[in-house]
Amino acid sequence: MGQQGDFLHVLREHGYAVDNLCQPFNGGASPGHTDITTGTTVFALKYVDGVLVAGDRRATAGNVVMYDRTDKVLELDRFSVLAIAGVPATAFEMARILEHSFKYYRRSQLQDLSFEGKLRALSTLLKSNAPAALAGTGTVAPIFAGYDQLEGCGKIFFYDILGAEFEAVEYAVSGSGSSTIRGILFYMNRWGGGPVAGMNEEDALTFVLRLMTSAAEFDSATGGVDAQAQLYPVVKRISAEGVRTFPAERLKLLFSEKVLNHV
């Protein structure tokens, strides 16, 4: 039927294995021995105008760098993004399913899916993916950030690999590089001269670049900033006007002025 605007239902009718995005390998190597790409740093933080979401661009498999231009901060619709950490194959597929689910709902029901509804959709996907998550072949621990139009504010949610949902008060981090910046964020919020949520765009963006550089310093799986190769993290802004991506030139300028030179 699909008359309720449920895209997963429509996909199931067409024989797509929605409930088994990444089947655990039977009798395969244990997770510790498989080279699955999982290294990452993604985070989101609130600032004065809304939310900033950032992700590094490195994809690794074990100690091999697979790719240095990955985009891990994915726009799901005009008002929400998914920052992915975990197995990319499953994570990208989840993002694609969500993007189409939101579109399908809006077009069929002639109204936007509510913010709560979007959160539920992501939780449902993560829960149905639990066997693969536990086996290690489909582990995904994403951050969802969006603008709640009913309440008129930006919101951040983070998830464990089984789909439990937590709302972040000020910030959320995920990925192998996250422990480094989690400490920094805690320190800055407490003793850094005012909460991060009170920063203006310029300061918040500088802070984001510094955090990413710190994560890359201590985590080999995080790409950080490579100014020589013109490689900057993906940073998106979510506000009442919707999602916007910061152009590389803006990041480049900030990086050379306020990150590289230790102002």
Binding site: G2, V10, L11, I97, H100, Y104
Partner: peptide
């Protein structure tokens, strides 16, 4: 249905 399944 047709459009979204195909697009996906």
């Amino acid at each position: 249905d047709m459009a979204h399944v195909e697009g996906f």
